[in-house]
Design a protein around this nucleic acid. Sequence first.
DNA 1: ACCAAGATGGTACAGCGGTATCATGAAACG
DNA 2: CGTTTCATGATACCGCTGTACCATCTTGGT
Lengths: 202, 202
Amino acid sequence: MPKRVDHEERRAQITEALVRVAGRRGLHAVGMREVAAEAGVSLRLVQYYFETKEKLLLHGLQWLTTRLSSRIADRVRAAGEAPGPRAVIEAVLLEALPTDEESRAFHLVHTAYAVLAVTDEALAAQPFIDGPNAAEDALGDQLERAREAGLTPPGLEVRTEAISLLALSAGLGTSVLVGQRTPEAATAILRHHLDRLFPNES
Amino acid sequence: MPKRVDHEERRAQITEALVRVAGRRGLHAVGMREVAAEAGVSLRLVQYYFETKEKLLLHGLQWLTTRLSSRIADRVRAAGEAPGPRAVIEAVLLEALPTDEESRAFHLVHTAYAVLAVTDEALAAQPFIDGPNAAEDALGDQLERAREAGLTPPGLEVRTEAISLLALSAGLGTSVLVGQRTPEAATAILRHHLDRLFPNES
DNA sequence: ACCAAGATGGTACAGCGGTATCATGAAACG
DNA sequence: CGTTTCATGATACCGCTGTACCATCTTGGT
């Protein structure tokens, strides 16, 4: 047998090339050849590791979601050990804003995938439902913890607020993406609402 | 000279066909031939009234924005004569949710355009900045009126709340689009925040 | 050492989509 | 009544893109 190559590693290399190209030229404009060039491999190899373009795109979406989880986890870790509910929530929400170049490309491609998933039944729309639902659950748990600790105003509707915060972040993220707002302005607005929900912490 | 035809009317007919097709199959999948078939004209005619596909797409985007203004105006009119700030704001926000089939297609295509505009410099990103900015101004004015009338809680930051409401609506609209939430659930959340800003009205 | 199987390269093929070209039809105006 | 000009139809062309096929090289196992 020949040089046994780590398939997963190569697939990752190609997938990351796909996301880079999609972030630069737009997801609609990515072709197999361009992905191959970006990854520094031949067209044949892209075919070899992903039979078809559809499978490549599917894997790209999968990669984006896991990468998002990873980035959120990083932010939570960076919030210190045993962070409070507000810190955790803030970490999740801020990750929804395109700040650095990677996260900008990330959200652009992610949104492009979401638009695709609405019409193309080949791309499952489930990731765009399960992911947000899980995020809502997580934020809801954190808010519930805070409520039981007496950190929040009375009469707080936990689930509604969790949904609202995530929708707000998504909307602000889009506005940053199209250049209507700076990431700093969006961050300030998010913090304003966190201050509303956690009046006791500055 | 031959049968003089109303160019604007034909262009409108073709443009509406474009949006219908884009709402059904996705903006990335629309071709000149399909638009022609949907409009009930020949491919040549689409070329005749819009020289190139890029110009057709550009006109489509333009049409979407004016149609959005029109739908918002309808909603405000339907709110009765001399509607209060809350009614006007609610009209604007609810229009951001995909309710009927037309508005669903509308928002899907609009989002697809926004994603395109980020990368393709042919499509100007300006509409996606000017439009939301104007909406923020309008909501800000309404909130300011309400604040001066003493309808809102003390310490209200008008501009921040206007931006937040619009971003929230956009985020909720997207979640409805991908099927994560029903329009009714999104409406309830919007109304919850309106109740927060206008505590005296039910 | 050798060979079987995996890895990689080059290239051809078919389909599609936007655009261009040619030709024809229709009607308003002199 | 014709001709000029707009409107419309049919079709050809060209480039691109995904996919398939064939050839070659590499290397691990025996």
